[in-house]
Design a protein around this nucleic acid. Structure first.
Lengths: 342, 342
DNA sequence: CTGAAAGCGCTAACAG
DNA sequence: CTGTTAGCGCTTTCAG
């Protein structure tokens, strides 16, 4: 009586349909789903009764009985900027195609991220976890409970399926290209501790420099957004000695860097070369040298792998690893000697 | 025995915890939630048992008993481009703050959009519906079933809460500004039938022109993405008589237009003025004149209003309407006479 | 403060 | 083909 405000009214149950159609609830249940096992005539009657009553089966009742949610989850650090949005787009699209609902969770650096992820795990049949959203123990705990899991843009944990974009080799390519421009003095803007991707990019970049006997700079920590890039770049560019090139962890940081350079009267690439990562839409328009990664595909693959785990023999298949290729995109911002691509 | 592969293993139930703690399931239930009503000593025992067994209450069981999902839904046309991603970001953030999980659904122009939305409705306690995702009847059907609803960037339906961004007046401002530049010959790129926002923008634009006794062009239908804008602009720009300005339904169409212009050797704004709508990141970098709208706030407001409906007296409060202000952002792309802002 | 028992709405054996 | 009957896991009266 007091809970009434919490509860939906108008809730027609299977019992009412059964009574109205003059059959049992089991028959209603079957008529509304199984194709055979029910006389056409009976089905019609049930269907009619259901329609008249405007009956909508309760997902909760059904899910509880079936022991499954028919829903997938996805966890990412945040939803700022084009990167995660694109991944999510690919994920949602593929999941919908497979007939599954999608629950999202952005941890946004909240302190209770682990609790939230654990809670999400109780609402889905499987989920993908991205980046450094939660510690490995949480991943293990969820996996141990039997929930299928796919890791995305995250370092592998135990024998879980993992999908990543290639970072190291392409970062080394980028380094080589910059060295080819004659640059020797670099700044790396990004925090390797904040994301596995950045860690790999930085490592690959450093290795690429080392291959050419150029000393690698320590990474200058910087968050992933444009403002952070702007602020960090300002600090860097105000020092007595300017670097020849600033290599950024992603495009937004690079754009912030360009803004800072412009503000200080520096020409890019004349006075300073700048590179990003992701190849977001803006990069193309401002001529930013960057690395393209297949964001949508990453999300789509994750959805499909998850589906495999949830349908096929869950424990049978071997653990899988997939590294999507990425591609260096040379534009104006890194210097113009080599003519530039596109 | 055959359903075993569908079911999670390791599923500890409240019964096992009860047995282990030597109490009844009712006590376990209470101990794990209510603060009072249970002896500290009892609570400890239960807590211990639950921990040892690694017990996680089943959301399904709980939700079914409580008669609520503790989850919200959001429906949008698609997830391409920054606009919806930003709205979603604002929505997720606010919803999480209120302790609710978020289910997303992108209709992507699918034929079974209505069915999907109806299905989503069975999984949530309330939802927000954006744009032209589903016809009014579907909205009404869901509302009638008792599920709280908030409409976002969509024309009002009956007495449902509706949140929108201002379109008409600002579009008229834009028109006035362009007329001030001396332009008289326009092309409008966008499909008023595809989105209520575009319909309003076009109407406001036309009205703004009319106020200055300038004839308004018919709208040239065009999808919402850059490629569509590019293609449409190419067609327009190849005709014998060039317009003085192309007014676009959103920024991505405008960017596509700029690309087309550039490719045809036309200078923006020298040979052709171009304007967009949304003020996405790229707009700032390419100097695109546009209109800024508070995308995040739109999503956040929707989440909060929905929450009001789901908690406070659902039927008591009056229907609400909110129109978030938008702001004309003048940049280079519309011409340089007036000095330009920023 | 705690236990027994009645559901929440639906699916799935198991018998006819 | 259809009805009966158990549950699925948890919350919540109703009695102690």
């Amino acid at each position: 009586m007091k809970a009434l405000s919490q509860t939906k009214r108008n809730t027609v149950t299977i019992y009412e349909v059964a009574r109205r159609a003059g059959v049992s609830i089991a028959t209603v249940s079957r008529a509304l789903r199984d194709s055979d096992l029910v006389t056409p005539e009976t089905r019609r009657r049930v269907q009619a009764a259901a329609d008249e009553l405007n009956f909508k089966p309760s997902r909760l009742g059904r899910s509880l009985a079936e022991g499954r949610h028919a829903a997938n989850g996805i966890v990412f650090p945040d939803l700022v900027g084009p990167y995660y949005a694109e991944v999510l787009l690919g994920y949602e699209e593929a999941a919908a195609e497979l007939g599954r609902s999608v629950l999202i969770l952005a941890t946004n650096g909240r302190a209770d991220a682990s609790a939230q992820v654990l809670e999400l795990a109780t609402r889905v049949d499987g989920m993908v976890v991205m980046g450094r959203t939660v510690p490995d123990e949480v991943i293990r705990e969820i996996a141990a409970s039997g929930t299928p899991l796919v890791l995305l843009a995250r370092e592998p944990v135990d024998d879980l399926d993992t999908i990543q974009a290639e970072n190291t080799a392409t970062a080394a390519d980028l380094a080589a290209h910059l060295v080819g421009h004659g640059y020797r003095n670099f700044v790396y803007l990004g925090d390797p501790d904040a994301s596995p991707d950045v860690a790999e990019r930085y490592a690959g970049f450093a290795q690429g420099l080392a291959d050419h006997r150029v000393p690698a700079p320590a990474a200058t920590p910087c968050a992933f957004d444009m403002d952070a890039g702007y602020a960090a770049a300002r600090t860097v560019l105000r020092k007595k000695k300017l670097p020849q090139a600033i290599v950024c962890a992603n495009d937004e940081v690079a754009l912030g860097t360009q803004l800072a350079a412009e503000e200080l009267g520096l020409d890019v690439p004349g006075d300073l070369a700048v590179t990003g990562w992701d190849d977001v839409m803006t990069a193309r328009f401002v001529g930013l040298t960057t690395v393209r990664q297949p964001m949508r595909e990453l999300g789509g693959s994750a959805a499909n792998w998850l589906h495999d785990r949830m349908t096929g023999a869950p424990r049978t298949a071997e653990r899988r690893r997939q590294v999507h290729p990425t591609q260096l995109v040379i534009r104006r911002s890194c210097g113009t000697h080599s003519g530039g691509t596109k």
